[in-house]
């Protein structure tokens, strides 16, 4: 008993230590963002703000300068939303359709196609930059939000297809056969039979894609026009643009603002993420 209690104490001690270690940077960011510049200069890094102010947040959101524009993160935040939401939805839906076709409507060469798509998961961003730039230029959607959406959809397809393919392979083929005998076609089966049971993997895909696309910097900095830059690029510019004094509090607030949507997605849908990754065959 005594031994048990000691080991239990040790266990919790280590867990709490690990949690504190992981949360420390978050705390420093949060407390710094609520301090005035004077307090930052005087106080210690990890002390709580004694006169909290939301001034830095307002500035980061509305008036801070990144480059020559002094409109804060707001317009870029909207750019990011405008880019991320369609890109996530399109890549997830097309990935679902791909996964469905690759598992339940096998055709000659479908296995090769899947392998080729898998390779797509391993291609580094940098490799596609130049060819993609040429392509976007040729199609006439470079420097626009459509170009960015296109790039993210194409790049994300490999992952979303893989996710859905591995999920749908656990769905018994007899389900599709039964629906065909009942008179359903390719899209009816997808929409009425497969999609309603795809909840968990849908969440996984959305979380994965949202995180990838929202956090992306490279594609944003290369392919976006000056008025379609995502928030990650703007954050970089904001932190690097200084007029005399370095405003740590504004930088921290801006960084938190830029990270907020992904945090929110994890908090809201996090439990589905694990559930979806571990979900096996559909019991029917």
């Amino acid at each position: 008993m005594a031994m048990n209690r000691v080991s239990r104490f040790f266990l919790y001690f280590m867990l709490i230590l690990a949690a504190l270690y992981a949360l420390a940077p978050m705390w420093v960011m949060l407390s710094t963002s609520l301090k005035t510049l004077d307090e930052i200069r005087e106080g210690s890094l990890i002390a709580a703000p004694h006169a909290p102010t939301i001034e830095p947040w307002l500035k980061a959101w509305g008036t801070a300068c990144s480059g020559v524009r002094c409109e804060g993160l707001k317009p870029f935040f909207l750019n990011s939303l405008l880019m991320t939401i369609p890109a996530v939805l399109i890549s997830t839906l097309v990935g679902a359709l791909n996964g469905y076709a690759l598992t339940h409507w096998r055709f000659r060469g479908s296995d090769f196609l899947f392998t080729a798509l898998l390779v797509g998961c391993f291609i580094p961003f940098q490799v596609v930059l130049l060819p993609m730039a040429r392509l976007l230029g040729a199609v006439g959607i470079s420097d626009s939000v459509f170009g960015l959406i296109f790039v993210h959809v194409v790049y994300g397809l490999a992952f979303t297809t893989l996710f859905f393919r591995n999920y749908y392979i656990g769905v018994p083929g007899e389900l599709v056969k039964a629906a065909r005998v009942d008179g359903a076609g390719f899209f009816t089966i997808f929409q009425r039979i497969l999609l309603p049971i795809s909840g968990p993997i849908f969440m996984v895909c959305v979380i994965w894609q949202f995180t990838q696309i929202w956090n992306d910097f490279l594609f944003g900095v290369v392919f976006a026009g000056s008025d379609s830059q995502p928030v990650t690029v703007a954050l970089n510019n904001l932190v690097r643009t200084s007029t005399g004094v370095k405003e740590y509090n504004v930088d921290m607030a801006a960084a938190i603002i830029a990270a907020l949507p992904t945090l929110l997605v994890y908090i809201v849908a996090g439990k589905y993420f694990v559930r979806g990754l571990t979900a096996g065959a559909v019991k029917g």
Binding site: P172, E174, L175, K177, A178, A179, V181, R192, I193, P196, I197, V282, K283, G284
Partner: peptide, 14 residues
Amino acid sequence: IAMVFQSYALYPSM
């Protein structure tokens, strides 16, 4: 025709 399958193949969401 109508068919009955080994795994029954009932549509799980319905």
